[in-house]
Design a protein around this nucleic acid. Structure first.
Lengths: 217, 217
DNA sequence: CGGATAGTTGACTGTTTAGTTACAGAACGG
DNA sequence: CCGTTCTGTAACTAAACAGTCAACTATCCG
């Protein structure tokens, strides 16, 4: 079965890193090859173009990183309102961590690339659309559950999810522009406001087990 | 005083158009020159780089287009809640119009460029930050006024403005990614929800004179 | 008119980039 | 241990690109 290699994975990792740190347009195939320590001939052995590499890298990001985290954070074993709170808090933590490690806020790579390429590069852009739409059901179902258990005021869950997700993406984009994670500090608070948490005389909460914070955004 | 020219303005217009239609990174100096019908030598007579041109073009966009529209839409002669409603409705109308004219949604050029370049191109990026921050006082003051006249539930106007603006930017980015203006159809409705309009038994409203819709976003 | 000022041009340089190819080497299966 | 299959490499081509320059042209003002 011939020689084996992980060069294609090194290329995907390098591409994602570089595109996230700068932008899709600012990164060249040579940059990616250098970071991955792969020669250009090998690049073209595995991929036909930067766009094809980007699509593969994004799909890999979802499968290997985001989906497992989302599945854990939105586990039905966690109280619905806590799923949402932890999700929002996790986004803040994640950006804090990135800032500490890389010296700058990077925001959401999928949203950034999607916004940058929305009027061209149709394959890459539609992959970003796809991934973003995969996150929606998690939020929407948590909202529906929270309405059912009375922690949220009743309403249309789809509509409420749209509002929360757009708000979140707007905030993350803003944090990236400002290069300041503190913009996201009140994310859980503000999010709960938007979602209209019911004002009950707060019980000392025999609350659900601590949910893992999402490390994606 | 020698020969006169509007080539620098043609360059700014062309740059803004192209960057808006595609992205900062995807547009070359030659592209801009071609669209503006200007030779490259003239480009370098007026500007030192693409970044310098972009900064000038963005400032011009604010001064000549956005600021006048914002001033009109947020005129104190309009009821505060209507300023906000019209602002949001105007964003939808504007994107509908662009879609009709150019065949695709373009979103907000300032936010798109800002997000794309946030980790490099510091001059361009800080200009986008500046312009975005100039829009905030309009929204915040309208919210404060609406709280004062009782149409909005009381609260922290700054906080409420943050939420509304982030939500708006998230929605516009989403519309661009989806290439669908209808995403923005409910913008005024959803916005009023977020802002917590007081549920009064709606008077047949001896409402304020119709405010001009904002054509910026 | 005529010079000073402001703007224009095309042809040029050098660099960066995407993409190709012929060949060398490495691992596995038999 | 040998042939097949898969992987890696350097050296290459052609195109796109940023940036420069000396010569040219238009317009204004005195």
């Amino acid at each position: 079965m011939g020689r084996v290699s992980d060069a294609n994975e090194r290329l995907m990792d390098a591409a994602l890193d570089l595109i996230w740190e700068e932008s899709y347009g600012a990164v060249t195939i040579e940059d990616i090859c250098n970071r991955a320590d792969v020669r250009k001939g090998s690049f073209y052995y595995f991929f036909d173009s930067k766009a094809e590499l980007a699509v593969a890298a994004l799909e890999r990001l979802w499968q290997q990183d985001w989906k497992p985290h989302m599945d854990a954070a939105f586990s039905p074993s966690v109280a619905p309102i806590d799923r949402l709170k932890n999700y929002l808090g996790g986004v803040y933590k994640r950006q804090l961590d990135i800032k500490a490690r890389k010296g700058k806020i990077l925001g959401c790579p999928v949203a950034s690339v999607g916004s940058e390429l929305s009027s061209c590069e149709t394959t890459v852009c539609s992959k970003t659309r796809e991934i973003i739409s995969r996150k929606r059901p998690y939020v929407e179902s948590a909202i529906r559950d929270a309405m059912a258990d009375g922690t949220l005021e009743p309403g249309d869950p789809a509509r409420r999810a749209t509002v929360l997700i757009s708000f979140l993406e707007g905030m993350v984009a803003r944090a990236r522009m400002m290069n300041d994670p503190e913009v996201l500090k009140d994310l859980p608070d503000l999010g709960m406001d938007i979602l209209r948490v019911r004002q009950t005389a707060a019980p000392a909460a025999p609350s659900s087990p601590p949910a893992p914070a999402v490390t994606a955004c």
